[in-house]
Nucleic acid binder design. Structure first.
Lengths: 248, 248
DNA sequence: TTATTAAGTGACGATGCGTCACTAAAAAAT
DNA sequence: ATTTTTTAGTGACGCATCGTCACTTAATAA
């Protein structure tokens, strides 16, 4: 059964297989329901083999988290190709983040879980570094748009505000909005009235206005821009989302 | 040892005692390190008694979370007593939130953990309702300030934006900023350059400008306002924070 | 004094984690 | 062709933790 040396490709494929199975378990039973024994039960590998890939449950979680961030980064990179103003591109990135969180609710929650110290501390050094690299890739996308906004004069940087700070403000706003309106978190009385897409666009517009990034909210038809996002950038994702909420 | 009927006050006191012990364990060992057995070991009560108060570990976590939200609410209520403009009061609330997160990092993380479905699902109905009530109390404070801003004309509500939406935008922005810059989360290369107090004030100002809430950032000395917060509202808390970071 | 009943106890079965002594089989050495 | 080496893979095991439940304790009622 076991050759002396295993193919690098096979190794990676199996790692993927393990993560996929873990993700399915989490979707069904929640993060707390994830058990190495359950993963083993669903796969033709033994516990020892699983532990050859991941040092512990937490390491597996971080692996899943990274896989998710990788997908987000790819979406961001698509978002910034939007044919429009720099502010529209910025909005596209936020919209991409939201789409991702809706299409992969389990994975979005995972990113929060994986940042928890108890999870992080136990993860491999290697996987933690990988995580930082991925986050930088995310921010790289944002910084590109900010530079182009500055270059075109559409964004007038406020005094004492660096491009990194602008990127961070958009990130944290999007993160907070999505996290608090996330379907798997509970809803308080205010939250039930809130709809993720609408609020995220609102918050983005408020923030971008406050950042002095033109065209301002009242000077542009943003609903039209969103429609174009749906058609030109994220047709597949929007389709999937419809399929997800409509059926049965 | 055991009377037939136990005093309501004693009961509550013991509940507090259990939560306090749990919090200490979490501070030392992280959320994952919390174990009912460890709680039992540190207290003169048996496991069965603990389980008379909390149905499971998760219920205990939610209890801790609620205790924390209660403290935040009290801080908020103090914040809105600030003698100044409505925008200053709004900033005071955000500042209070931040202070709380710095003074009680463990508890701030707990609120995130406790919102996780795996924790929430297992908690008592009673404690979940309690949680919703507490969150409403939080938002109540924000809504009060928003009304006064509207009444005084300092806040000009943008079209299609309700007071609740304004409150939510501030909440989610603060939450996102604090969560991403939280000391117990890991830092990516951008995050290391970011300082919580400075960024939170920046983000608040950007958002409040974008919301069209006067006086605008450039028309007021906000640093001075912050200094007054520290002296007039949160002298104790600032003192504690200094004591916490300085010693050793 | 006895009966009742709420409060408290801790041993126990069940589950999950991560390890390690062992097996299997490919490649290398003879 | 046979033996040796080496690496991948296995799963039973020891340990920790969870939540339960049959039982004890002691205050109140009868």
């Amino acid at each position: 059964m076991s050759p002396k040396v295993i193919d690098e490709t096979t190794l990676h494929a199996r790692e993927e297989e393990i993560m996929q199975t873990a993700l399915e378990i989490i979707s069904e039973l929640g993060v707390a329901g994830l058990t190495i024994d359950k993963v083993v039960a669903r796969l033709p590998y033994s516990k020892g083999t699983i532990y050859n890939h991941f040092t512990c449950k937490e390491d597996l979680l971080t692996g899943l988290c990274n896989r998710s961030v990788e997908n987000v980064a790819a979406l961001f990179e698509r978002a910034i190709t939007y044919d429009g103003s720099s502010r529209e591109k910025m909005l596209a990135v936020g919209y991409a983040y939201m789409l991702h969180s809706q299409l992969n609710p389990t994975e979005f929650m995972l990113v929060i879980s994986a940042k928890t110290p108890s999870v992080r501390e136990k993860s491999t050094e290697k996987r933690q570094e990988e995580h930082l690299e991925l986050e930088n890739r995310l921010l790289g996308g944002l910084l590109k748009v900010i530079s182009s906004g500055l270059a075109s004069g559409e964004l007038n940087l406020l005094p004492h505000l660096s491009p990194a700070q602008v990127a961070f403000s958009l990130w944290s706003m999007s993160f907070g909005t999505i996290a608090l309106l996330h379907e798997s978190l509970d809803r308080c009385s205010v939250r039930v009235e809130m709809q993720l897409e609408r609020e995220l666009i609102n918050h983005s517009n408020i923030l971008l206005d406050g950042l002095n990034w033109q065209p301002f909210t009242q000077d542009h038809n943003w609903q039209e821009t969103i429609e174009r996002f749906k058609k030109e950038l994220f047709a597949d994702e929007v389709q999937q989302l419809r399929a997800q909420s409509a059926p049965t």
